[in-house]
């Protein structure tokens, strides 16, 4: 493979990884802090994508994307807060299966409501002009929007990392992960902390929906489209680890991109992802960057 083609497929893999990371970062944060596998994460991402498309198509893409960004993140955060208060607070002490079923029920309800409100038709919007256009390298074209997605993924990853390891909120979140009861004895309102974490997770899901909206069809199935790969990434990287999500996304993105590029491996490109997942589960069940559950 010549360097031009190698770069083409490497950047293709990075684009896919960026998309996957943007969507899974919030999922990982929520599991890391609250130990809840949030099956409704994709629903929040879908709501934000719909809001962005509707706003952008209503007031024009130039301003619409940024107004949509604000409205969509607020909407995702509000819905997230409602889910946390009404459903999650009642299942924190239950086993994971109950939590899965509870959040899955929420996902089904939101999916139905989305179809009622926005219909079954797919909606699309153009890319905002700031990020549209292409650049050419070694004879191949690259979408600026894909490069923007890669940059956005890096910024989101860095912001979440800094929030967790350089702020008081992050210190409280990490303390809650270690022992939430002990943390409550220090005067920290753990209930409010959990709601805050879930809302941040919802914002991240919303941000993912906003960023993805101009690059694909926005429809009522986009919540579940991402689920299988998102969980594969979480297992490989370690559920709960932001660094793990980033590395897991990179592995999955590049394996798929180069796997599909090669005729000899094309038919098995997706299978490789799950082979890696099985290998990680066998050797290190808590993932490459995760930590074993103590309870």
């Amino acid at each position: 493979m010549d360097p031009g083609k190698f770069l083409l497929f490497a950047v293709g893999g990075l684009s896919l990884a960026a998309y996957l990371f943007i969507v899974t970062a919030g999922l990982s944060l929520v599991f890391g802090a609250l130990r809840v596998i949030n099956m409704a994460h994709g629903s929040l991402y879908m709501i934000a994508a719909f809001v962005t498309v509707v706003v952008a198509n209503q007031i024009g893409v130039a301003a619409g994307f940024f107004v949509g960004l604000l409205v969509a993140i607020l909407a995702a955060g509000a819905v997230g807060a409602v889910i946390e208060v009404i459903v999650l607070r009642r299942v924190y002490n239950q086993e994971h299966l109950v939590q899965l079923l509870g959040t899955y029920a929420v996902a089904l309800i939101i999916s139905g409501l989305v179809r009622l409100i926005w219909g079954a038709n797919y909606r699309t919007m153009p890319e905002p002009s700031l990020f549209s256009g292409t650049i050419s390298l070694f004879g191949y074209s690259y979408a600026r929007y894909n490069l923007f997605m890669i940059a956005a993924a890096l910024v989101i990853g860095a912001a979440v990392y800094l929030m967790l390891y350089r702020t008081g909120l992050g210190r409280n979140i990490r303390a809650a992960v270690a022992d939430s009861q002990l943390l409550s004895t220090t005067g920290v309102n753990v209930k409010l902390l959990f709601t805050t974490v879930f809302v941040i997770g919802a914002w991240l899901a919303g941000l993912g929906g906003v960023i993805v909206a101009p690059s694909q069809a926005v429809g009522s199935t986009m919540d579940s489209d991402i689920l299988v790969l998102a969980f594969a990434i979480s297992v490989i990287g370690g559920l709960g680890s932001i660094v793990g999500s980033l590395v897991g996304s990179l592995i999955v993105g590049e394996v798929i991109s180069f796997g599909l590029a090669n005729p000899a491996t094309n038919a098995f490109a997706l299978a490789f992802v799950f082979l890696i997942m099985v290998a990680v589960l066998t050797v290190r069940p808590w993932g490459l960057f995760g930590t074993p559950e103590t309870q």
Binding site: F9, L16, Y140, M222, D225
Partner: peptide, 21 residues
């Protein structure tokens, strides 16, 4: 390389790159 999984994920970067190549 003719066939892509059905249903597939929403990103088509690999196919688009393969066409360019």
């Amino acid at each position: 390389t003719w066939y892509v999984p059905f249903p597939t994920n929403p990103r088509w970067d690999s196919t688009i790159n393969a066409i360019q190549a």
